[in-house]
Amino acid sequence: MRELVVLSGKGGTGKTSLTASFAFLSGRAVMADTDVDGSNLPLLFDVSVRRRESFYSGEIACVTDDLCVGCGRCESVCRFGAVHREGDRPRPKYKVDPLACEGCGFCYEVCPSKAVKLQERLTGEWFEFETRAGPLVHARLAPSGENSGKLVGLVKREARRIAKERNLDLVLVDGPPGIGCPVIASLGGVSGALFVAEPTVSGLHDFERAANLTAHFGIGSMICVNRWDLNPSLTERLEERARSLDVHPVGRVRYDRSVTQAQREGRSVVERESPAAADIRNLWKNLEL
């Protein structure tokens, strides 16, 4: 089984539009949308839900007022500023801010009256969808916004399971923007990465940081320049820089309003002929998947 992650560093360069097109062109892929705090891949398909589940990971502290003796040790050991005193001595109460709590459990360990409890943290929900381009695993991070990397890992595991069960030999991972925790999680076990970059000074800068990340993990990478004709000379520079970082240029997609039009119509770009669709077909051939 092969697994390709589509990445960009910079957001909004066209990862999702390309991933959907690849799934359509492949016809034998499972899609994994790992942009768990801004998942858009399902919007390009009429999805039907096969499965929907909650996902818990990590813990979160909570103080039980009845048991609390008001000593304040929890507040004093917390380095994340997550425990706050409410009310005054001799019997203050302590509250944990769920957004600041890292779930380290230090407060739980030091509490002399067992008033601090650790509860499982709801990380988010995940879904298994059926689409006209194949199965799609999607997730939605809970409002606390924590542990996105764990949710990304889960989405990928489920996508691989489905691929195995249905004898599909390709997993297409729509990656998150940036180079942080969810991106690192999206790289686990992939056979290769495709960068979608745009020919802008920001695009060049962000691509370089993202390429350093894949190099750090020893992942073979390719690059495609999207909307390349917005700045042909910068496109040349991007591809040149890519080669020097051992990232192989595999295609260019021109600036074409039909890409946004496809999004508005809820379909992938390649489902209707257009200049960009032709470019994406060429790109897909060059990927040799």
Partner: peptide, 10 residues
Amino acid sequence: APPGTACPMM
């Protein structure tokens, strides 16, 4: 700010 709605944005 960074994109998204996860802990970096928060």
